[in-house]
Nucleic acid binder design. Structure first.
Lengths: 149, 149
DNA sequence: CACGATTTAGTTGTGCACAACTTAGTGGCG
DNA sequence: CGCCACTAAGTTGTGCACAACTAAATCGTG
């Protein structure tokens, strides 16, 4: 991008950063609908996915998986606890750490979540190849951006 | 995606929706840094891009460009007004409408924003082709998702 | 012309994201 | 042992996103 004038880049930037921003929010909207029955928000669903997949783990580990800090996770997990989906308890081994684990209701919710992804994927109108291409690009993008910080 | 079991899809879903969510937030982080000097947040920068490009326009038009509703834009634009970057005034022709226009300070800020996109693009570590591929995929994705609502 | 439907902004309430900070616990090192 | 750096989680404050609602102006149709 050597000899493109700044003003032109400003316009392109508009397109690119806006595309990502808009896509992320559009995705959020579709998930909002799909998850309404489950009583979960999109970020809460992400946290549940991690717990369904990897079982009980400290807040710290969930934060690393989801790239979220305690300022976001603490209240989110507290809401999941209030909803009866998870239990949070201080680790005996390390009292700084709080282990998050699913309740029975939380485990059972997975059954009802199983049809969600298929519904979302069909909403995207994309082929599997496109999804994988997109995912690859996004992964590299996130890596590079985190690196650049 | 016909004969893939639901449980597998749940895992893939984890990857895809998380990728987008994470990329969007990583992008936000890089912009946060780049825009700190300008005193703008990322969404405020998007609004300024629209105003720099298209000039004075009603809140409604900005919302359509950015896919944002008045609940988000009204306070955001009020903050830009407090910062002295825009003026908001009721349209004489249609009193329901509020026209947003740049102040001198708002127009002048564009000069300082010119180097931002180049900095961001270099942070992405992507080629122009990849950026355009990504943008194309994201555009189609957003269109399909909005359609599906 | 009148009145009901629609349109445009704005407000309120909930939840997420993140910076900056606090609190409590852990572990190393002199 | 005692002190200090570090770590995990939580708290506070600001701003964004969006649903649901309100207020006011406009438009269309009888």
């Amino acid at each position: 991008m050597p000899d493109v004038p700044d003003a032109e880049l400003l316009r392109l930037d508009h397109q690119v950063c806006f595309s990502l921003h808009a896509a992320s929010r559009a995705f959020g909207g579709v998930y909002r609908d799909a998850l309404k029955d489950l009583g979960l928000t999109y970020p809460q669903y992400l946290a549940m996915l991690v717990l369904w997949e990897d079982g009980p783990q400290p807040v710290k580990a969930i934060g690393e998986r989801l790239r979220l800090d305690s300022g976001t996770l603490s209240p989110l997990l507290k809401r999941l606890e209030t909803a009866g989906l998870v239990r949070r308890e201080r680790s005996a081994a390390d009292e700084r750490s709080v282990t998050v684990q699913l309740t029975d209701a939380g485990s059972e919710l997975r059954e009802r979540a199983l049809p969600v992804p298929r519904r979302i994927l069909s909403s995207t109108g994309m082929t599997v190849e496109e999804i994988l291409t997109l995912q690859g690009l996004l992964g590299r993008l996130t890596g590079a951006l985190d690196e650049a910080q």
